[in-house]
Structure formats: C-alpha cells, structure tokens
Design a protein around this nucleic acid. Structure first.
Lengths: 351, 351
DNA sequence: TTGAAAGCGTTACCAT
DNA sequence: ATGGTAACGCTTTCAA
C-alpha cells in the first residue's frame, strides 16, 4: 500500500507538504508541488479512508426532512427505512442524523423547519447535509430552495424534485409510470376503449405528470377516452359517498381504472359499495400493506412501485459519500418502474 | 463519541483488558469482565470501524468464482458489475479481489480452481472469503462444497444455490419466476389454452424448477396444455434449423411461449424463419442487450429479470461485512421477480 | 490476569 | 514555504 510517507520520500519533501498539495492548502513552491504530484501519479497513490476519517474525526450532521411517517398510508416509512439501512451499513461513527417530520397538508411545520435553519443569523444550527422529500406547495419549496442556495447546503431530494433548484433527485420519472400503467390497462381490460384515472388527495406536479402521461399514451395505443377524476382530501362516510358518486358516472363505461397514488384501497371500497356486476381492473401505485392485501385478494389487479426504500438508501448513500469522501453531488438517480402482480407481490417484501 | 478509553476508565481497567473482553480473547477475571460489559452497555459503546481497520491493517483476500463474462450472452457481466460497485463503494483499502473465471460447459476449469485451492496442503493460497456462481454439475458442486466445509471458508453463492451446502444464497426463487411468467402468458395470449416452455442450452435444477412452476400454475389458472421443449447447446445453421423444426410442431397450437433462460432471441429468430401468420407472445428471461432490443421492437413481449446486478452487489456486500465487521453470514437474500415490458425497459438501464 | 506502549495512515498545528 | 509532531481510536505485543 502506498502512503503519504512514500510520496514524501519519493518527492524529497515532508508529510506536511504532501498534505498541502493533496488538499490545495496553498503555500507550496511550484516546483515542489510538481514533484509531489508526479510522485502521486507514479506511485498511483490512493488515500486510506480509514486513516482519513480517523484523523479529521469530524462528525457530519445530516438533516432529514420528511412527512410524518404515518401519513399517506404509512408510505414514508419506506424511504426512511432505506435511509436507516444506508446509514447503518456505512457504519460510520461520524454521522449524526437529525430528522424533522412535517405535515404536508399543513405546511406550517415545514416552514418552521426552514425558518429555524435559515432565518437564524448564526450558522450554528446548520447541518452539513440535507435529505428532503419536497412534497409541499411550490411556494414553500421555493423558500427552502433559497435557503439551500444561500448556504450552499449539500442537499438531495427524493420522491419529488425540488422546484427552482438544481439539487440531485432520487426517484422515478412520472411519465414512465404513466406509460406502464396504460400498457397494463390495455392488457387487463376486457372490453371497450374507455378508461379512467383517479387521484385522491393533494395533486402535486409529480402526480399530474403521471396522469398526463397515462392519458397521452392511452390515446396512442387505444385511441380511446380517458376520464380524469380527482377528489381532494377527506375521510369518513361523506367522503366515501362523494367518491362513490364520482365513480357511479363511469362505472358502466370504463374498461380499467388507474389510481395515480397510493389510495387504490379507497377506490376499491367505493366500487364495491356500488355493486358493479363486471370486473373492472384497477391499477394502483405503491405497495403499502393494504394495497398488497387487496392485490393478493384479486381486488386490485396490478400495482406499480417506485422502490421507495431504494430511493432512501441511494439518497443517503450519495450524500454521505459526498460529505465524507468528497464524491461529486450532481447526477440524478432514477428508479425503474416496477410492476407488481399477485404472483410476485410476495417477492417484493416491503419495497 | 464513546471510546475504549471511556470504557476502561468507567470499569477501572486498562485498554488491553477492554479489548480482551470485546474480542473474547480469554484471560479475564469473571468480575472484571462483568464490570467491563456493564460499562459497554451503560455507555452504549460502538467501535469506531475506521480506527479498527486502520489498526489491524489486515488485507482480506476475496475469491470470485464466476463463468467467463462473455458466456451465456454476456449475462455474467451483470453480477460482476454489481460486485465491483459494492467493492468500490465500500472503498476499503483492505480488500483484495481475485477473480477466477471458468467455463461452465467444460468443467475442467472449475475443477482446476477447486484443486488449486483445496488439494494443496498449505493454506497459503486460501482466500478469506469466496463468492461463487455454482452453475456446474452436481458432482462438481459437491467437490467445492466439501472444500468450503473443510476450511470453513466464508462463502456466498449467487444466481444458483450450491448443492449439499448451507452457505447463504443470493438470487431468485425459481418458482416465483415461473408463476409470474404463467400470469403474463395468460394476460398476453389472445386465443387457446395451450402454451409452451422452451429451454435452450444446459438445463440445471434452477431452470427445471422454473419451467415446472410455470406448468403447474398454468394448469391451475388456464387448465390447458403445456408443451415442454428443450434443446441442448449448439450454434450455427444446423442448430437454428433444429430449433425451427421443434417450434414448427407447436406453432399453430400455442397461445404463448415462455423461454426459461436468456435465449429468447434464438426463439424469436426461429419463429420468424417459420413465417408464422399470427403474433405469438414470447416471454423471456434476463435483460441482456439483445433481449432488450427485441422487447423494444415488440418481437419479445415481456422479460422477467432477476436483478443480476443487485445479486452481485448484495453478495459482495454481505461477505465484506462479515469479514471486516464480523456481521453474521447466514440468511439468504431473495431477489424480487421483475416484470419488464417495452414501456419500462429503459428504466432498468442495465439491471 | 492485567497494564503500558508502539504503531496503523492521515490531518492539523506549531515551529522554523 | 517547509518540516516536525501530536492526535484520532483501536489492536497487538511485550512486560509485569
């Protein structure tokens, strides 16, 4: 193994000088610097990560900004588990996690985070890196984006992209998801060329793009109609009734239904309350436990997954590699569009 | 951060003693050991991995035993890439890889490896760990299994299980693959209840199980016939003719074809030489470049993937965690059954 | 059975 | 501008 000592010897300088060259900490005569760089090249020196980390001993503070894990049907547990796995796998003793949960339907908690970190004049509370799921309004997103830019805070977004920002994104291309859903609808429908998309709850740009891509592609491969339904948040019998009312209007017409987010279970319930005779194939999104069960029972016909756990894992991994080893923080990581049927749902455990 | 020093101070002993307790290197009085363990518990001490590795400075040698990367249509590049990624991600300066390629159709090269490592009385050449794809005859497998057992060599098999051995396995459950293929055949066929499985090349237990599961499940969901075709290895015009001859007998009958291994391209070619009028859906295995292209062209209808790259990654990761950090080496890791259609093939890049 | 001390490769600081 | 040296946390060896 080649060490800084070897470099120093070959270049005829001391350890300190080698270190200065290695880290561009100035104050090195041009010719000595050249000699050192030459030695580094010739001996193909690679720094020992263990020694490096042991030596500087810095503890990196990483903020995680994510919706309450229980919200959205428990969806956020998945990426969070992925992050935990990444951090524990790296078993770095020099990483400290600070998680801030927010309520995506009442953005004050999100804004509180932004204010706490960025309005303070002291940089005391600033983390070294940030992992975030920016599923809030564009306005709120913009505030955070500014904060990140101001402090040059190394950040990665997962699940959705952060608007007005160039930070890397780990997640799925919503268009691809829509296309695959359309293909599945085509395979599974047994009659007609009319289908429907249903979006329950908050409609963000990500979901809009998914539904849009579905519609376009459906018209391309089936030249049929797409009914686009959506219903804002709510719960209780009133909500279910309202949903059932929406679906009643299309139940005799559509050959399949694509639920663009994780609420396929509600759609199943509403259809069953309508007492539809024929089987209308339902294609949902995200393998939450309730969705998986309905899939096993044959009451949902397919689910598309975006590997939420892997998203968390890869985002956390990229950020730590950047902080600890100085790896670049630039390119996005796109998740494949995963098709889940009753026959392979068990093989996806909790992904 | 809690260090051994803290432990030593709290327990009123020296560093050496703490170390002995930590690593069960004996020679510690029962009561002092109790005090040390208590301190470890109370302070919830976690060893600093960097310091640990820097200190003992051991270089772990890992053997990789894998078929020639170019064979089987280039399939083995995938798990190999996954391993490389795992090792480079860990960027441990104390891992040394030694890859041995073998020819799975002429097992001498495989046996040579076994002999070189295990017949030698000196343990000089023995690695610290072994990653292997045991795609050879049961006899050859048994020899290696013995060798592993004799030397208690930490080993992990990927792609297929090693017979007569308890070493962990990273790969897919062949049954699940067969079931998913049957479901896809059912979705895609447009007529009849008769289908066929085709296996080209060597038929190993893994492939046999896949085809078997397909047949059983098909009969369950379609109560139809399954023609099981197979043809040993070969190439050139004679082989293609022979294959075409086989397929001619079923071309008018089957509603879909399941190719159980990566040779779907050959089946496509043979069918096209037969000038079949109607479209017979073809379901293949493994996203090799040629398969992916045929899928994009609509000449293959679906491909099932077993995440070969992830297999290599996880196997390599598990082994290094065991060697470097003493993590247990026991449970299998099963890959999900991945469904790839023209609409999502691009999202799988090279997985 | 226990303790003391050297050393792993790197960084950071203080002299020169 | 350069060199020397202590320190990071742990393992290992040698004495006691």
């Amino acid at each position: 193994m080649i060490t800084v000592k070897d470099i120093a010897r070959h270049a005829g300088v001391s350890l300190g000088t080698v270190d200065r060259v290695l880290h561009n900490r100035g104050k090195v005569a041009p010719d000595t610097e050249a000699r050192v760089r030459e030695a580094i090249q010739n001996l193909s020196y690679t720094p020992n990560v263990h020694a490096r980390n042991l030596s500087h001993g810095k503890v990196f503070v990483i903020d995680v900004l994510i919706p309450h894990l229980e919200s959205d049907g428990g969806y956020w547990h998945e990426p969070y588990r992925g992050m935990e796995r990444a951090f524990s796998r790296l078993n770095m003793s020099n990483l400290e996690l600070r998680t801030s949960f927010f309520n995506r339907y009442d953005e004050q908690s999100f804004l509180d985070y932004v204010n706490a970190r960025c309005r303070a004049n002291d940089e005391h509370g600033m983390p070294d890196g940030l992992l975030l799921a920016p599923v809030v309004s564009p306005d709120a997103q913009r505030l955070l984006a500014e904060c990140i830019a101001t402090y040059s805070l190394p950040s990665i977004s997962f699940d959705s992209r952060l608007e007005d920002s160039q930070i890397p994104f780990v997640g799925q291309d919503p268009k691809q998801g829509g296309h695959v859903a359309a293909r599945l609808a085509k395979l599974m429908k047994d009659t007609g060329t009319s289908v429907a998309t249903v979006t329950l709850g908050r409609v963000d740009p990500h979901l809009r793009a998914r539904a849009e891509a579905f519609r376009e592609y459906w018209q391309e491969i089936s030249s049929g109609t797409v009914h686009e339904l959506s219903l804002l948040d709510g719960s209780g019998p009133d909500y279910e009734k309202e949903l059932a009312g929406l679906l009643r209007e299309i139940r005799d017409e559509v050959g399949a239904v694509f639920v663009t987010n994780a609420s396929a279970d509600l759609v199943v319930g509403a259809f069953e309350s309508l007492d539809v005779r024929r089987h209308i194939p339902i294609i949902g999104y995200d393998i939450l436990p309730q969705n998986a069960n309905l899939l096993r029972d044959g009451r949902i016909d397919a689910i598309i997954s975006q590997r939420p756990q892997t998203q968390g894992y890869e985002a956390a991994h990229m950020l730590t590699q950047h902080l600890v080893f100085g790896e670049p923080l630039d390119s996005d990581i796109l998740m494949p569009v995963e098709i889940v049927l009753p026959e392979n749902v068990d093989s996806f455990q909790s992904e």
